[in-house]
Design a protein around this nucleic acid. Sequence first.
DNA 1: ATAATTAGTTTGTTTTTCAAACCAAATTAA
DNA 2: TTAATTTGGTTTGAAAAACAAACTAATTAT
Lengths: 105, 105
Amino acid sequence: MYIELDPILLSNARLSIMSLLNIQGEADFMFIQKELKITAGNLSTQLNKLQQFDYVIITKQFKGNYPLTICKITNKGKLMLEEFFVAINSYDRNKEKLIHYQIES
Amino acid sequence: MYIELDPILLSNARLSIMSLLNIQGEADFMFIQKELKITAGNLSTQLNKLQQFDYVIITKQFKGNYPLTICKITNKGKLMLEEFFVAINSYDRNKEKLIHYQIES
DNA sequence: ATAATTAGTTTGTTTTTCAAACCAAATTAA
DNA sequence: TTAATTTGGTTTGAAAAACAAACTAATTAT
């Protein structure tokens, strides 16, 4: 195998959650759900897994009368995500072409 | 969800097989197995899946007395792999930083 | 003859994904 | 006011995927 890709991040749902949190820093459950268009069940499951591995921290509050679940990316989460992208690009032999293209545009 | 990542390629085993075949064009079963250090069982399964979706074509010959399974990447396979890397990089907000770094080195 | 090797495939367990069903509290409609 | 709906989730369970162990079948070495 090349560099093993982190199985926590090698998932459509979790990678998009982490990518979103990496931009936003933190976001609440409903925002993530609407933004990413995933079901609440799936989101709940994946957030718990991400928390379990310290990629995010989840805090629960009330906003008015309703529960509010806030998800924040951790430093570990950020590092793992960075590593993931470095690793996956090492699989891409066209990297240089792509880089060139990106810079030109 | 962001851009949905191709589930065929969102797998450590299959992504490394495809990445290898993208460089080599074609390779035989044993070469792939030794190169990627995956079990024969896993390789067999994943190659069948890749063939099923026309990412590779598998031809069987004999080399001397022993069977020889040759795997070749298809045009579709190449295209899907390219797309995959473009898509996954769209998840990376640090892309520009990384590009810069890569160019400098 | 029998043990070990080559080149794989098949089978079965574990893990993962994901959505339907569920829950409790709050709100709105009749 | 009480029934239905909405909000904001969690739990459960079915289906698919990942992967290694066990197997096949032929060959070669001892």
